[in-house]
Design a protein around this nucleic acid. Structure first.
Length: 588
RNA sequence: GGGAUUGUAGCUCAGUUUGGUUAGAGCGCCGCCCUGUCACGGCGGAGGUCGCGGGUUCGAGUCCCGUCGGUCCCGCCA
């Protein structure tokens, strides 16, 4: 196929180029045919340029291009000239190309959906024809932003003395954490590799080796159910540092984020991101990843509940549970239906119901106002700082449960009141610190690591290691951006004895620990430096930067919520021959 | 594993509540016309396994059962 190569792309021509003869290559974005004059909008990654073909000047060429339709690929040669009727909507709108010669490089079938930014098509079809979906400028911009993020990241960490070291993708399956994706070994039949959930152990071993500062942009895999912000394979910016403590890692991370925001968004972020302890975050926002672009704090009213006439509150307080309240300003106008929807939401998070009070022109109403003497209602509402026109929602129960319920309602209320669009702080950055080291798994009847079992306990809580494990706080920290857990890390245990005690605590025998993590325990005995690190969810970071709340928008070829790839149809069946080579028989 | 919601023309959706003639609209597509459009315009036209399978019924897009996808959420995700 003959075509003339471009001398300009479709987004660059301006009035100063008038008079130049250029060649463009691109896709037909739109065609407007007037018979003796035809306009063709030619599109490439950089933009759109209008091309004019005058049939009276060039009848032969016009006849050749008569069939041209959307998404055909053309080359076009002609002079740049000022437009009679400029189009202020596009950057090249002041100029156009008068075609002198042109040709069809490739034809296109009629696409299943139009290649436009404000596409209404369902995601199923878009994913099936992902290569067409990716022609849309909005998606391209997001992926180009992701590309720049990767460049800026490497540039920053390289300048800070970090070495990028690759770690294996075929690794050992380990207990704890997410389900592993397994890869059968042909050479060693009946045995399996696991795809890494993170390069955690390898980066710690690199610290033992003395690499001192490591970072890697790396794919990791977790075989768990998906969400709007979760894919089975995703990318981490994995970071580890030696001879540091928590504050050093957090400070380094903040400087990186500041650098990224400056370079990619030209926004100046102040260092010293807000820090909130896990306990405070749960108490005040009902979440360990609160979105602080808006307020809506939760208050504790357990003290008032203890002497309440409302039996639900009273008995909760007597049982050692808590009563929490969420005041939603100007929401007393919520209808019965809207309250029912909020109640359903509360129930999905484990609430029995949703007690609420409304204050309208001094009158108290609500689901339990009849069970509450007026003076008690007044006291309770003032404890919640409720003003006229407010709605107050209550959650009753075990501490973390009650907090979580109101945390979910807080997000929903913000959505309904459209608080995010009204914010004066478009980016909310905060650290969550002092996570519990362990949590109790009622199913397995044992303690499990909340972060991972290599996380160091806070020094001042070490004495609780055997007496009160649930109260131990970890030297762990999450960086939360606009309500997303963007990064998480910890200072690691660098002492093999402490590491062994940790394994004991989560019910792992010495034998098992040695079998599964013996290489780490051994390595820690050969002069391990104090070390710690953090890992960013690269996709989530790209999401926040690109201003989307769908992780699939920043992944070129994502999977659906059931883990399918609709374009190539994986996962797929494999031949019996392949299974036989691997020594695998499928069971029904 | 569970819940909610969704699937009708190439696309977006209406029609399903209360089963009943030939399943509609906008956009797109095809043909003709048009010299300044850029959401071009005008005239005409084609296009449907109502996701799939089974059932109830004289009759199913509509009711019932099952199933396969999409989206969101709970559990899960160190």
């Amino acid at each position: 196929m003959n075509f003339r190569k471009r001398t300009a792309h479709c987004g660059e021509l301006r009035p100063s180029d008038a008079g130049r003869t250029v060649v463009l290559n691109g896709w037909v974005n739109a065609r407007r045919d007037y018979g003796s004059i035809v306009f063709i909008d030619l599109r490439d990654r950089e933009g759109v340029t209008q091309v004019v073909l005058d049939a009276t000047d060039n009848p032969e060429l016009a006849a050749n291009l008569k069939d041209v339709r959307s998404e055909w690929v053309l080359w076009v040669e002609g002079a740049v000239r000022m437009r009679e009727n400029p189009n202020p909507k596009i950057p090249t709108g002041l100029v156009e190309i008068v075609v002198r010669d042109a040709g069809v490089i490739n034809r296109s079938e009629v696409p299943p959906f139009e290649i436009v930014d404000d596409l209404q098509t369902n995601e199923e079809l878009r994913l099936q024809y992902r290569y067409l979906d990716l022609r849309r400028p909005t998606i391209q911009q997001k992926l180009l932003m992701r590309s720049r993020l990767a460049s800026v990241t490497r540039e920053y960490f390289s300048a800070e003395g970090f070495a990028e070291v690759e770690t294996p993708v075929l690794t050992r399956s380990t207990p704890e954490g997410a389900r592993d994706y397994l890869v059968p070994s042909r050479v060693n039949k009946g045995r399996f590799y696991a795809l890494p959930q993170s390069p955690q152990l390898f980066k710690q071993l690199l610290m033992v080796s003395g690499f001192d500062r490591y970072m890697q942009i790396v794919k990791v895999f977790r075989d768990e159910d998906l969400r709007a912000d979760r894919q089975p394979e995703f990318t981490q910016i994995d970071i580890e540092m030696s001879f540091v403590e928590q504050s050093d890692i957090m400070a380094m991370t903040e400087r990186y984020v500041q650098h990224v925001w400056k370079r990619l968004l030209d926004i100046d972020l102040d260092l010293g991101f807000r820090q909130v302890t896990f306990a405070d975050a749960m108490n005040t926002y009902g979440s360990d990843k609160p979105d602080l672009r808006y307020g809506l704090p939760i208050v504790d009213v357990t003290d008032y509940a203890a002497s309440s006439s409302f039996v639900v509150f009273k008995s909760a307080a007597d049982a050692g549970h808590v009563v929490k309240a969420l005041r939603i300003p100007d929401a007393a106008s919520f209808s019965r239906k809207q309250i029912d929807e909020l109640t359903d939401l509360a129930k999905t998070h484990g609430a029995g119901g949703l007690p609420y009070l409304k204050l309208v022109q001094g009158e108290v109403s609500g689901s339990f106002s009849k069970n509450l003497p007026p003076d008690e209602a007044t006291t309770l509402l003032s404890a919640c700082s409720a003003a006229d026109g407010d709605l107050v929602l209550f959650a009753v129960g075990e501490w973390e449960r009650a907090c979580t319920i109101l945390g979910a309602l807080r997000i929903e209320a913000a959505r309904r009141l459209d608080l995010v669009s009204k914010t004066t702080t478009p980016y909310s950055m905060l650290w969550i610190t002092e996570f519990p080291l362990l949590e109790h798994d009622p199913e397995e009847q044992r303690w499990v690591a909340r972060h991972h079992p290599f996380t160091s306990p806070m020094t001042e809580d070490l004495h609780l290691l055997e007496s009160n494990p649930g109260a131990i706080r970890a030297r762990a920290y999450d960086l939360v951006m606009n309500g997303y857990e963007a990064a998480g890390g910890s200072v690691r245990i660098h002492d093999s004895t402490v590491q062994q005690r940790m394994f004991d605590l989560i019910g792992m025998s010495v034998e098992e620990a040695n079998a599964k993590f013996g290489f780490l325990l051994k390595a820690l005995k050969y002069g391990a430096p104090p070390h710690g690190g953090i890992a960013f969810g690269f996709d989530r970071l790209a999401m926040v930067l690109a201003g989307t709340n769908n992780i699939r928008d920043v992944i070129a070829f994502p999977k659906t919520t059931s883990g399918l790839s609709l374009m190539d149809g994986c996962p797929s069946d494999v031949d019996d021959k392949q299974l036989a080579e691997l020594g695998i028989a499928l069971r029904q």
